[in-house]
Structure formats: C-alpha cells, structure tokens
C-alpha cells in the first residue's frame, strides 16, 4: 500500500480493521485454548460415536432397517453432540472473567461473538463432519447419499452453532443451565434438521437435493447476520442486568 493510500484511511476504517483483527485474535485464542485441552474438544466426537451406536443396539441391527434410518440418526447424533458442546461456549470465559472483558471491549460485540462461534464450529462442527461418514458407513447409509450428507452437515453445523449460541448466551449465568440450554435451542434446530435430513433422504431416493441445500444456505446466511446480534444482546442483558 502506498503512503498516499495510507493517508486516505479514515478513522472508521481503522476501527473496522481493528474489529476484524480483534475477531481473528479471539478465534486464534479460542483455538489455542481448545488445543491445549484436546480431551474436552474430543468429548462431543466420542459422544457422537456412542449415540449413533445406541440406535442399532436399541432398534435393530438389520441392514435394511438401519439404512432407512441412517440419515436421520447421523443428523440427530450431530445435533445432540453440538448441543452438548454448546455449554462450554461461554461458560469458560464467564468463569475466569474474560466474558466481562469482552463486553467492555470497544469492538462491536456481535463481531467478537461471531469469532467465538467460528472457533466453536472449527473445534466441534468440523470434527463431527469428519466423523459423519464413518458413522454413516456403520449405519449402512446408501452410498449415493454421502455427498448430500456431507454437504448438509457442512451447512448445518455452523447454523447449529449460531442458533445454539443464543441459548448459550441466555443461560451463561444460570446454575446447571445445560438442560435449559437444550430446551431453548431445540425449536431453533428443528428446521435445520428437517432440511438436512430431507437432503439426505432425497439423495437416497435418487432425487435432487439442491433445493434443500439452498434452503440450508439461506438459513445459514440469515443466521450469520442475525444470530451474533441476538447473542450479543443476550450477553449484555444477562451479564450486565
């Protein structure tokens, strides 16, 4: 960048730059923290594996039955695993006081919140997406549905992190708020589940699933724009109020 260009930089551009930098720094910090305690990050993945194994044990191990249910089980398992991991989204920061610091920072809180969600998805959602094909194999999901499964999970897991973040923010100061968090987040997850499994089912039937993915994409864009604002507002209400 030339110096002339630098001189034209206005104050608000600098602040925006700082905001984005702050978000990236927050993401890096969260990722570093997550890698320091890999056990904690792997819990949702282990849970995912175990929950998916419960279904054949509880229903039937026959291939035909399972392959009909496989799409739903893989999706529901991922949903439950994300729910489980949401509890720690803000709790860790709340316990050591960094949450208050975040709220005091001059950067726009929705941006920082978005950073936290991105970090959460990178540590949880991505791991679940990697596990999913293995589970789908174990549950005899028909092969033609695998791309649909991966694509729908790729769109759905960040969406679930975003939507679940609202419940996590509202319950961050509640004692034993884990179940309440689940109760609050589930209605938000139902459309995601419907379209995610719809895509997989469509693929199993050999039909197109781009419509489902487009809907998921639309929800994701909406979530990216609106959820951080709702989460930031919830955090301010619950922490300052």
């Amino acid at each position: 960048m030339s110096t002339a260009h630098n001189k034209v930089l206005q104050a608000k551009d600098v602040r925006q730059l700082e905001g984005r930098k702050a978000m990236m720094a927050l993401i890096r910090r969260d990722l570093r923290l997550a890698f320091r305690t890999p056990g904690q990050s792997l819990n949702p993945v282990a849970f995912y594996l175990m929950v998916a194994s419960l279904f054949p044990l509880g229903i039937a191990p026959e291939r035909e039955t399972l392959s009909q249910l496989a799409g739903g089980i893989v999706w529901i398992g991922a949903l439950l695993a994300v729910l489980l991991s949401l509890d720690s989204l803000f709790k860790g920061d709340n316990d050591d006081g960094s949450l208050d610091q975040l709220l005091l920072s001059p950067h726009p809180l929705p941006l920082l919140v978005l950073g936290k969600i991105i970090a959460h998805w990178l540590t949880t959602g991505v791991a679940l997406i990697v596990m999913a094909p293995i589970l789908a194999l174990m549950l005899h999901l028909p092969e033609q549905a695998f791309p649909a499964l991966m694509a729908s999970l790729l769109l759905g897991t960040p969406l679930m992190s975003l939507a679940g973040g609202i419940g996590a923010a509202l319950t961050v100061r509640v004692q034993r708020g884990g179940v309440l968090l689940t109760l609050l987040s589930l209605p938000l997850y139902i459309p995601v589940l419907i379209f995610g499994t719809g895509a997989v089912q469509s693929a199993v039937d050999g039909m197109g699933y781009s419509g489902h993915l487009l809907w998921l994409g639309a929800f994701l864009v909406m979530g990216l724009c609106l959820a951080p604002i709702a989460i930031a507002a919830s955090l301010r209400i619950v922490v300052d109020g």
Partner: peptide, 22 residues
C-alpha cells in the same frame, strides 16, 4: 422455554429482558 428461562433467572430486570429476547 420462556417459562423455564424466567424461573432460572433471579433478578427481575434480567428476567424481563432475557425472556423478551427469547
């Protein structure tokens, strides 16, 4: 969800605004 959230929060003002957002 709304009823549970109201029961889980102690302060009246926080209850009001948290339930409103929810």
């Amino acid at each position: 969800g709304v009823i549970a959230l109201r029961g889980a929060i102690r302060s009246a003002t926080t209850q009001a605004r948290a339930c409103a957002i929810l």
